[in-house]
Design a protein around this nucleic acid. Structure first.
Lengths: 126, 126, 126, 126
DNA sequence: GTGGTCTAGACCACC
DNA sequence: GTGGTCTAGACCACA
């Protein structure tokens, strides 16, 4: 479990994003119990406090909730998860369009390029 | 001119990418003379040797060529530049599709999401 | 029955206050027989000696009286209970006004704020 | 600067409340620079990390903002401060009404009691 | 054993 | 010097 310790992005932020992805992708289903702070920290090779910080932030946004003595759980509010999924997607898309613009592709060009690439891909692989 | 000294990617690779982008985007036009190694290195706050390594690699791929006494020049082979542009774009797109897949969007979903987002954007801003 | 063992206020003081509240609120009516010291102590998860100290103090002020063989009783002097009620209320009010002052509300502002809040509340709930 | 280390309320929560009061009361005016984390921590006799946690929470709610190298500042959004003031006041009032109810005073009784007490007080002191 | 809190001490980037 | 982050290790309440 390698972490970009060198990256300028704080580890706890990376942890937050990783867990968000795991929730969105369904690795952790709504209502599921998360492993304990200590366990998650060990798996990620980070200090328990760092993992705690990440989880506290996730709790603040409502994605997970904690029960004092029994552990942390994924929210059962599916709408919230869907919303998060959309938000993250928009972020990824915005970044993508920016990269393409740097390469000289305007939005519509990007779109047609992508369309073409996906359609030819579909004919091959599926 | 901040470089990701911390990143695990070698600096000379980052330099190559930056110059490639500058060529594709037209900042350096085909046939243009590049600044001297020393000058480029200074602008990028990088050791001249590192810049030299980057330029040598660009030369190897044919994107720039050097004339012994008068300096380095951008290739005049527009096709090559176009090809590079396409290659980089495909790389960016592949990465993008990968990110979206992590979020649970299949390629076609990504495409329709993107289409929708761009079209609504066009109505607003242009 | 959690006691603020951590609080800097002695437990027996807290016990006195709790019993006073119970008398004022009518949980223990005038003339009622109090449970035994042991029983009260057990309910409160407190050492019987501590409860004894609290009851002795209540006895000293006249709120309860003991009959040698039959136990402790709440005073039948309703006026005394009323007086205590008023005293405690004034204490609560004083503290309240102090808190509001810390927030920047002068007494009259506090009063109008409170009036407004209660009246709007009455229209809704009753 | 004594802190209720014994209290069951986390210290960082108490710190948050104290600073909120200081902002509302005008001790720290909008736009003012706060003392450094280390200085505040020393004054409050707590660990800098604990103070940091409190300030981070205040920053999250928008009451203060930080500039990386020059320090932390109180928000200039006076509306936000006013809103906070109102919220805290409502909280205090609710608690107050609860206490009074425990003593057997209904809301309207509490109100008339308070009114009477304040008016008699005005005739004396002002 | 769980989450939560706190301390002590360290390193970093920025200016 | 500033804020920000991270680690290591400790204690607590709860059940």
């Amino acid at each position: 479990m390698p972490w970009d310790l060198n990256s300028d992005r704080p580890i706890f932020i990376q942890l937050i994003e990783k867990i968000q992805i795991d929730i969105i992708s369904g690795k952790y289903a709504p209502g599921d119990k998360l492993p304990s702070v200590r366990e998650l920290a060990q798996k990620a090779s980070v200090n328990p406090n760092t993992m705690q910080k990440a989880l506290a932030e996730l709790e603040r946004t409502g994605l997970v909730y904690s029960q004092r003595t029994s552990g942390r759980f994924i929210t059962e509010d599916i709408g919230m998860i869907e919303q998060l999924k959309t938000e993250l997607a928009e972020k990824v898309i915005t970044e993508f369009l920016g990269d393409m613009q740097k390469l000289g592709y305007q939005k519509k060009e990007t779109l047609s390029f992508l369309t073409e690439l996906i359609e030819s891909d579909c004919q091959q692989s599926s």
